[in-house]
Amino acid sequence: MNTKHVSLKELKVTPEITDEDRAIFASVISVKLADWQIKQIVTPSQICHRQEKILAVHWHPEFVPMNLISKRIETMFPNMEDELLIPTQHNELMSYGPYTGVEVDCYASGFNQKVQLLLHFENKKVENAHVLKSMLAHTFKYRTSQLFEFMDSITRPDEKKVHEAARETGADKELVELVKIYVTKIKTMLDENWADVPKASVKNKLIKNYFDALRPKFGNTVINRIQSYLKAIKSLVKTDFSLKFFYRATEIIEETRSLGGCVVIPHPEEFWPILLAKYDVDGIEVWNPQSQRYTDFLISVVNEQNINRNSGNKEILIFMGDDCHMSEKTKPIETQDPAKAAREIGLQPAWNDLNIRKKLIIAGINRQSVINEYRARLAG
């Protein structure tokens, strides 16, 4: 089906919210797991019989229970001998075993850019972390507001972002109007059911997931075009999203240090300037499923910094980030993003890449050495 040749009337789309609309909305916001979803969660994409050391300090449980995540990890790594696993939900502290972590959005004032930091703690160190928890609650609420900016950019008439995104993706008037009608419905249903909507569902991907649920109705061709258009608008919204309400990176780091926590820089490929800021961090993520291009170079940068560090300064540790989002495992296979679905907690192929391994050996670094050193710092 091609929206260029099909009118809205033929597509049977009306502004009125139907029972079908409400059913889709309820399924998209739900965090309850069906049996088939649980089966997908506990069944990993592969079994790594030869990997005995598991290091994962950048992954997102989202709404998936930790006991199911644990089953997946144990199945995937049946010969696991040692592990350091710390979840890093976006702007929300979560614990797994003896450790608590979070990936926090913050503001790097020196180069006027949003960055993210991974914070890690022993559980007991954040039991009374009232200031940090308040900072994260503020950041979570503000970050969530981006969804409403996203929806407003689509539904407001003559919105500049709509025209720019339509031009960029080749979206015609009918497709733009189709998206506007559905996003207006989604916004209305969000408002009507706000008290009962799980806060974990209030994020940009709510829109993406809703339209994915419409694939049986409109077909892949139409929905793929819609998703391309939505992605373009989301990118424009993120670009214009105000940074002034985020806490500064230095404030987040200072509060973390005051609690005895540790800090790692993720996504360095996205945030190059942060490497020049000389922040007080424990480690740098040199590989990530989204950031693989400069791994060799980043290892060299870390090694050089360690060689030239002042006496008494601790070494910068090297981390790999699997950046696994567990909610992707709960979607029907046909609507999963293949690249995201391939991510697994603790699966970081770069550790076994022969070229990368050579650099790591020269630096005296391997999974076990990082596990040992970071565990000691977390306990310090």
Rank of each mutant, 00 (worst) to 15 (best):
P216V: 12
I54N: 06
R248W: 08
R215N: 07
D323C: 11
D323G: 08
Q89A: 04
M151Y: 11
P289K: 01
D337Q: 06
H130A: 14
P15R: 04
E168D: 15
H267C: 08
H325D: 10
V131P: 05
R343A: 01
I41A: 01
Q40E: 11
V126A: 00
G110R: 14
D105N: 03
W272G: 01
Q292G: 09
K71D: 02
I333T: 14
Q113C: 14
T139A: 15
Q40M: 01
I186C: 05
S70W: 09
L84D: 09
T144K: 15
A363K: 02
M189R: 03
E251R: 07
L85T: 06
M76G: 07
K9Y: 04
V126T: 12
F63T: 06
I361V: 09
N303T: 05
P289T: 05
D212N: 12
S7Q: 03
D35E: 11
A350V: 00
V31C: 08
T88C: 04
E285C: 04
H90Q: 07
P157L: 04
V57L: 10
S95V: 09
R167N: 12
K359A: 05
N220H: 08
Y374D: 06
H120I: 06
T43C: 00
Q227D: 03
C324Q: 06
M151D: 03
P87L: 06
D280P: 02
S369E: 13
R293A: 09
K187H: 10
V176H: 11
H138I: 12
R357L: 07
K185F: 13
I284R: 03
Y99W: 13
I186P: 10
T43M: 02
A165W: 14
V370N: 09
A26Q: 12
Y142D: 10
L136Y: 09
L317I: 03
